[in-house]
Write a protein that binds this DNA or RNA. Sequence first.
RNA 1: UGUCCGAUGGUGUAAUUGGCAACACGUCUGAUUCUGGAUCAGAAGAGUCCAGGUUCGAGACCUGGUCGGACAACCA
Length: 558
Amino acid sequence: MKAPVNFIHQMIDEDIRNNKNGGRVHTRFPPEPNGYLHIGHAKSICLNFGTATKYNGKANLRFDDTNPTKEDTEYVDSIMEDVRWLGFDWDDRLFYASDYFEQLYEWAVKMIREGNAYVDDLNAEQISEYRGTVTRPGKESPFRSRSVEENLDLFTRMKNGEFADGTKVLRAKLDMAHPNMLMRDPIMYRIIHTDHHRTGDKWCIYPMYDYAHGQSDYLEGITHSICTLEFEIHRPLYEWYLQQVAEGEYRPQQIEFARLNLTYTVMSKRKLLQLVNEGIVNGWDDPRMPTICGLRRRGFTAEAIRNFADIIGIAKRDQVIDVALLEFCIREDLNKRSNRAMAVMNPVKLILDNYPEGEEEILEAINNPEDPDAGMRSIPFSRELYIEREDFMEDPPNKFFRLKPGGEVRLKYGYVIRCESIVKDENGQITEIHCIYEADTKRGMPNSNKKVKGTLHWVSAKHALPLEVRLYDRLFVKENPDDLEEGQNFKDFLNPDSLKTITAFAEPSLGAAKPGDRYQFERLGYFCADLDSVSGKPVFNRTVPLKDNWAKIGQAEK
RNA sequence: UGUCCGAUGGUGUAAUUGGCAACACGUCUGAUUCUGGAUCAGAAGAGUCCAGGUUCGAGACCUGGUCGGACAACCA
């Protein structure tokens, strides 16, 4: 599948035509290490690294670590792992905004010297007041007109740790009446006496995003600084800061695109963090999370996620992608690559009355019909089997072509059978289905081509391997959990059935599954052996069910 | 009562830069199938937010609206 040309690539094409930056293309992915990466970041990663590849350029990984109160090496490590897992490589271009603290400081001093920055003593509340509102201009701080000398002295003392958190800030001197609120003397530095994950206690003043980001881009020679739409209004400030320090012609260019939203999930780091902290999910890598590590644990492949990122495209209008598209991408990939296996999730016993008691045989099964190289495997067969309870109906509707009284059906890789009778318990629940099998309908036998409408998966009762299976569903029941009325909370719409753990019965070959191994359980879906698996006793996560036409018919008839 | 941005089938993205709206997902038929999966063939579904204008010709350009989003953290 080929991604269409997006507007960013069109801009780059134009830049190359004009020989801007000598035709050089250099991007960066700039996460703040304050949370785990999610599928929305994957979109950005694919865009940035993909763009670099497409134009024979480079892409940096840069941690935007300017706020020590929120950041942690735990996040740095997970982010690197996730970017790598997605299949991208930053070579030796791993950077941190904190690498530039010294330079940033010097530039700030330069701005003070040139009368473009000042130390303000107003507290946070006052600064907010003085900033005015979106429709009313702000007013200037009484400290705005301090002399350069005084500003220099104060800023040095800020840096030296003479002042408490929150008592002073360094501000750019722009225009308190600017219609764009970001231009109303934005804060450049604040005092934070907190150890930084990389610089320790060396600094107690830290640069704000707007001041640090563009300068970092500049220092790294970034040509196209791609970010999400909410920074669009920051662009004039981005450019203004650059103008204060840049020499020569070169400037990085900020370009904004729409972030990804997915139906039936939330994407904000704050909300994801809340789900983790409140124990609503089991950590950042809970398979229900839209995090990269969650999707990975769920059984997604990097290829599927990259393909998804390609397909959804890049544009500037708000994007809400149907999760069905993500599911399509993983099914498409897993259909081609995963081996099949048989497992029964909701078993009912099926007995072949005419099959010799105590006898058993080995049936040969195709591992992956989509991949001739995947080979064959052996499955034990015997007189007593399990099939899915839903595969039998005593009094079925017309279109039901599974097992019914008097009806015939094929057991996958085995025989055609006919239902003779059923046994129920005192509650009317079916406990046994009795069938007879036709010995000559097995593969390779004369009547093997016998046509029946249905084929069922099954497991030999005696050989069945009990399997913990975790059935995941969407985390929210509401298409857009962020779209709330007064008094509602996104957590009001959590899906109580987002995780169901069951014991399934599987063919013995699954006992060899190792964490990360992916299978298609015939007729059910794609499953991935979880980290919690122990040798011989695997635990499976359902990545995604197979498309189910029958379920759709059932729905329609209700 | 501001600034910036956006608007194309249900969803998302295109339209060779002004030449009778295409692709994917989803939906629906049918064929095929030892997975009601996959595959194959086909169909429905928008006349491009609205109103003007420029033009032989506008989804694209201009003007004015409407609707939606972002911005008033010492977050990024």
